[in-house]
Design a protein around this nucleic acid. Sequence first.
DNA 1: ATACTACTTGCGCGATTGCGCAACTACTGA
DNA 2: TCAGTAGTTGCGCAATCGCGCAAGTAGTAT
Lengths: 98, 98
Amino acid sequence: MTTALPAEAQRDRSAAVARALADPKRLCVLEFLADGGERSVGDLSRNVGCQVPNMSQHLAVLRAAGIVASRRDGSTVLYRIADRSVLDLVGALQRVAG
Amino acid sequence: MTTALPAEAQRDRSAAVARALADPKRLCVLEFLADGGERSVGDLSRNVGCQVPNMSQHLAVLRAAGIVASRRDGSTVLYRIADRSVLDLVGALQRVAG
DNA sequence: ATACTACTTGCGCGATTGCGCAACTACTGA
DNA sequence: TCAGTAGTTGCGCAATCGCGCAAGTAGTAT
């Protein structure tokens, strides 16, 4: 079995994930990544409509929460959804928000 | 069919729901409501460990996001999870945060 | 009406957040 | 090495958030 974490620590982690999703631009990023597979920072920044440094910060928030992952390809950095469970989460979110 | 909302408005609603979930105490409230059915403000405030006015504010946030609903029973106000889809959302959140 | 319990609302404060801007690092190609 | 392109990081500011506290509303009971 996995180590039984105190319920409070688990809630803190859940809250951190929710906080990372609590921004329209970051949700927009996840929509692009959901059907685009991998995208560069510049690509995302153009499509979402914000400056590159701002997008980089948003992506850092998503990555810190374990929602996206990144890899470098030459001079560009490609971001992707970290896990399929993230798609379920975004779907559930949209259903409640619907 | 339902009116096709602009994607941006849908994202704003999703972000609002996520923001409402982005607090450990509010997640704790949802856990209590998930297996307790209906709970009063005082009850929740005792179990979560915060003052009554603070709990009332947290519940107002959750209600504004459509996550919980309330009804009055005499002098007490009982809160409950608004919809089953909220349970799916919290579950998906915990799975990603796991 | 009075007193009491249950809850909500307004206010102010410290902490966090999102953003633009500038500066910095990382990689490519000549 | 010297540009040039792609991202990241640091800083400051306005806006928002969570909280405690005080005051107000709603319902019960005497």
